[in-house]
């Protein structure tokens, strides 16, 4: 249903997406992960048909997405910059959206509005930041659009509410399976509900795989410094740290480690630890050539 072919987007000479390619054809709950400025919002807007690709293409239901009414009918995008009629109450906005999205479940929207204690007569601009995020999410889930794009849906929310909303997303997805893409910085909180992760970095898709794959993508290898150093020449190192008491730890790709086919005695003198997807995200996006430590100690 979503297909990106070498999607590239420039804004006034600045590259936001650079040859982004992936395909999603089945219902899925996918986390779109990337640092600030990685291109997540640009990707979402391109999928929603808001932006015209500079190069490459985005297809929604086998049709080019940009300004396509079929794409628009079947894609729901919510993001922090969304605007609404200033004079419309929440109730009126729910009514409006229900007229445009044929799958819209109005009773669900009203129930959720009441559950999260949003006053229906209030206007959108009168809500706090967290409440605005909640309302946007209510609209997105109630719309039941075949492709739902949630850009940072939990902005401004406290942890308790965030957890509830992630549960809500999961429950609604189970009830009405569809493609839901969620971009967020809180991968650790979302990890449990996701089917797959789409990892964006510097405008490219770095990795698009199931969550289980991400959970085993990187491995932490810990051992005596000399032994570890002997491995460093053979492997791509994502992180390296020296602990006290003669222990050194590196982060490497699991498949690269397996391909080394280390001897049993070497294996026994090393400690292997799994890396969570959230940590993997940190390592994969880590700046090259010095971190905060170097900044303070230089």
């Amino acid at each position: 249903m979503i297909r990106c072919d070498e999607l590239t987007k420039y804004f006034n000479g600045t590259r936001a997406l650079d040859g982004c390619s992936f395909e999603i054809s089945e219902p899925t709950l996918t986390g779109v992960i990337g640092v600030n400025g990685a291109g997540k919002t640009t990707l979402f807007k391109s999928i929603a048909g808001f932006l015209k690709p500079t190069k490459g293409e985005v297809y929604i239901l086998d049709e080019q997405a940009f300004q396509n009414i079929i794409a628009a009918q079947n894609v729901m995008l919510t993001e922090d910059g969304m605007s609404f009629y200033p004079t419309a109450s929440l109730h009126e906005l729910i009514g409006s959206y229900s007229r445009f999205y044929p799958n819209f479940d109005q009773s669900l929207a009203i129930k959720l509005t009441e559950y999260f204690r949003l006053e229906e007569k209030k206007k959108y601009n009168e809500l706090s930041k967290g409440m605005k995020s909640t309302f946007r999410l209510i609209l997105a889930l109630s719309a039941r659009a075949p492709i739902t794009l949630l850009d940072e849906p939990t902005t401004g929310m406290d942890p308790g509410v965030r957890k509830e909303l992630f549960e809500l997303i999961l429950k609604d997805y189970i009830k009405v399976p569809r493609i839901i893409l969620i971009s967020s910085h809180y991968l650790g909180e979302m990890e449990e509900l996701l089917d797959s992760i789409l990892f964006i970095h510097e405008g490219k898709v770095l990795k698009h795989d199931d969550v289980e794959e991400f959970q085993t993508f990187l491995t932490g290898v810990q051992g005596a410094p000399k032994l570890i150093e002997s491995l460093e020449d053979k492997l791509q190192i994502y992180d390296c740290k020296d602990f006290g008491a003669g222990i050194r730890r590196i982060i490497v790709e699991s498949k690269d480690l397996e391909s080394l086919s280390l001897k049993e005695d070497v294996m026994n003198s090393l400690t292997f630890k799994g890396v969570s997807p959230e940590d993997a995200f940190v390592y994969l996006t880590k700046r090259k050539g010095g971190g905060i430590d170097e900044l303070y100690h230089s």
Binding site: Q73, T87, S96, R178
Partner: peptide
């Protein structure tokens, strides 16, 4: 139950938008 795909015409969407704008711009 999967989410149903819809393919309404542009004119029907435009008409819906026209009504919506007329209503919300009542001020």
């Amino acid at each position: 139950m999967n989410s149903i795909i819809h393919k309404d015409s542009q004119m029907s969407v435009a008409f819906e938008q026209f009504k919506d704008k007329l209503y919300h711009n009542s001020f």
